[in-house]
């Protein structure tokens, strides 16, 4: 699963640690999500969406392209 977390974070000039604190997870978890190594749960994805005031689909999208 790909995501725009790093871009959204950079747009707001936040560090990984700041985003981690906002989402109440560790900085390592934010790093892993940004790199696509860890897929967040639905509650965490919703939390991120609320934080950025976007929908989940605006942040996370499936790597399999639909035709």
């Amino acid at each position: 699963m790909k995501n725009r977390l790093k871009v959204l974070r950079a747009e707001r000039d936040w560090t990984q640690a700041q985003l981690a604190s906002a989402l109440e997870v560790s900085r390592q978890t934010i790093n892993a999500i940004e790199k696509g190594k860890f897929d967040p749960s639905l509650p965490l994805a919703f939390k991120a969406a609320r934080l950025f005031n976007l929908s989940i689909e605006d942040i996370f999208h499936d790597e399999v392209e639909t035709v």
Binding site: E24, V25, Q28, T29, A32, P40, L44
Partner: peptide, 8 residues
Amino acid sequence: GLDEMQQK
């Protein structure tokens, strides 16, 4: 108390 990745 850990986050979901740490728990995993």
